[in-house]
Design a protein around this nucleic acid. Structure first.
Length: 493
RNA sequence: GCCCUCAUCGUCUAGUCUGGUCAGGACACAGGCCUUUCAAGCCUGGUACAUGGGUUCAAAUCCCGUUGAGGGCACCA
């Protein structure tokens, strides 16, 4: 039988990194077994529906390179793939359960249910439906009056869930609620819909977050009630935030779209995600894996049991590894949108600015953790800078006068240089350092501040090449003026 | 409160099934080298088997308890 797995998101917001990690496991599992990966939208809660959520989710998956074989957009033989379009199926299945005696109608009011819960809380009892309507005669509640349909969970015995990772997990039936299967608005709850659809869509492996383990026995009971063969379950550990709690809305930059905006590479994020909760083991220390290697080595059975904290620091490191592995041309292509968004580079990239980008890209490459870092690192090349503070223009172990003289010497040298490129700039400047009896760090540091306004900037010679002769000389001149003025002020004649 | 799951450096983890190598790697951190700043790279360093009891010649590894953490307990998914 061919492997069929699914990702079943509800369109209630942005997919976060924890959900996506679970999708990565699903996708890897499907692809390495030559199986199918299916997307099904679980939109049975009309009160929480977010209109654009499905598209955002599709975009995130595509960006990460996770493709699917069946789904709302591509269709497939088991559609529709949106639960709100499958209502008649759920009603029919609920009726079947009613007929078989595995379900019953319940017309308890929300108020009564709340009261019951209140009392249970007060007595420190387990909070669950009290069975008020469970044993009413079949015709006691008319199909025409508002009501819900509940699962008639056996009161005695146990239900076992076989989990690929945890083995046999046993639940006492007495602790399992008579779950609502069909709501009074005619929509199914998750529990009914998920079982019906997973069966009809012939899902063989249900790989989902550990937060579903508690409801797994209800699902197993439903499969039994219908007389359907059980799929394999794998409840994978949750991904926790830095505070050690389940990832949620309050955890900041956790949506995939946000990672994209910050300039993480999809292949790096994919690699990293695969390693959250899984490791190759067997003495293998490798952590950087191509998609193909992951496909080959990933092993569902080796997935960790303990929840993992998502480490942004390590992701940053891995992203840097992937950035450094890119060819300069490929990196530049990825960098351009970030430069443009920051307003540093014009929209159709002009020939001049392309030349600058070609110089800057290789010298910033090993300095980037995320693509967006390129903006603060290189902005001085594309936009004018404020004149640096005079104090910043004084070299280490140097006087203001000495620094001013250095600046002047540099400017007159650079004014006469024949070819304006990094390779032609470096030798004469180094020679100048010697002539002045100064260390390279002293002279170059002054030039750096004068031309970039920064203490920390990309390598100087390339930066000057990209800046151009005109802007370089102009900034040197301005720096001289500022320094001269401050010297003047400090010692009035 | 009740149910379920889990437990190795700060973090991600290898090692646990098939007891016996100074408990290995990575990120982060500290120091050093390199060096035009910052990075990158290289070298060095510190830090972990939650706890109590068994079983055994021998326990991170097997068993029981405790503690801790996470998840769940809706006409949400």
């Amino acid at each position: 039988m061919t492997v069929r797995v699914r990702f079943a998101p509800s369109p209630t917001g942005q997919p976060h990194i924890g959900n996506i990690r679970t999708v990565v496991f699903n996708w890897l599992f499907a692809r390495q077994h030559g199986g199918q990966f299916i997307i099904r939208v679980e939109d049975t809660d009309r009160t929480r529906y977010v209109p654009d959520a499905v598209n955002v989710m599709f975009n995130s998956l595509r960006w990460l390179g996770l493709d699917w074989d069946e789904g709302p957009d591509v269709g497939g033989p088991h559609g529709p793939y949106v639960q709100s379009e499958r209502l008649p199926i759920y009603r029919e299945k609920a009726q079947e359960l009613l007929d078989k005696g595995w379900a019953y109608r319940c017309n308890c009011s929300p108020e009564r249910l709340e009261r019951v819960r209140e009392e249970q809380r007060a007595r420190g009892e387990m909070i669950m439906y009290d069975g008020h309507c469970r044993d009413l005669p079949a015709n006691a509640i008319s199909p025409d009056e508002p009501h819900v349909i509940r699962l008639k969970m056996p009161r005695e015995g146990q239900t076992q869930v076989h989990d690929m990772l945890k083995g046999e997990v046993v639940f006492e039936n007495s602790g399992i609620d008579d779950q609502v299967l069909l709501k009074s608005d005619g929509f199914p709850t998750y529990h009914l819909a998920v079982v019906v659809d997973d069966y009809l869509m012939q899902i063989t492996h249900i790989i989902r977050g550990d937060d579903w383990l508690s409801s797994a026995p209800k699902h197993v009971t439903l499969y039994r009630a219908f007389g359907w063969e059980l799929p394999e379950f794998a409840h994978v550990p949750l991904v926790l935030g830095a505070d050690g709690r389940k990832l949620g809305k309050r955890h900041g930059a956790i949506s995939v779209a946000e990672f994209e905006r910050q300039g993480y590479l999809p292949e790096a994020l994919f690699n990293f995600l695969a390693l959250v909760g899984w490791a190759p083991g067997e003495g293998v220390d490798q952590e950087v894996f191509s998609r193909e290697e992951l496909l080959q080595r990933f092993d569902m059975k080796r997935v960790n049991l303990a929840p993992a904290v998502f480490s942004y620091e390590k992701l940053d490191w891995m992203n840097g590894v992937y950035i450094r592995a890119l060819s300069p041309e490929a990196l530049m292509e990825r960098l351009i949108p970030f430069w443009q968004d920051a307003g540093l580079v014009p929209y159709p990239v002009t020939t001049e600015s392309l030349a600058q980008l070609q110089v800057m890209t290789p010298i910033v490459q090993e300095r980037l953790k995320v693509l967006k870092d390129v903006v603060p690192l290189t902005d001085f090349v594309f936009a004018d800078i404020p004149t640096p503070a005079p104090e910043a223009l004084i070299g280490p172990k140097m006087t203001a006068e000495q620094s001013l003289q250095t600046l002047e010497a540099v400017r007159s040298l650079l004014a006469g240089v024949l070819n304006w490129d990094a390779a032609s700039l470096e030798p004469p400047l180094r020679q100048l350092c010697k002539d002045l009896g100064l260390k390279a760090g002293q002279v170059l540091g002054i030039i750096r501040v004068a031309t970039s306004g920064k203490e920390v900037a990309p390598p100087l010679f390339g930066s000057l090449e990209a800046l151009g002769r005109h802007a370089t000389l102009q900034r040197l001149r301005r720096a001289e003026d500022a320094l001269a003025a401050s010297i003047q002020q400090a010692s009035p004649a």
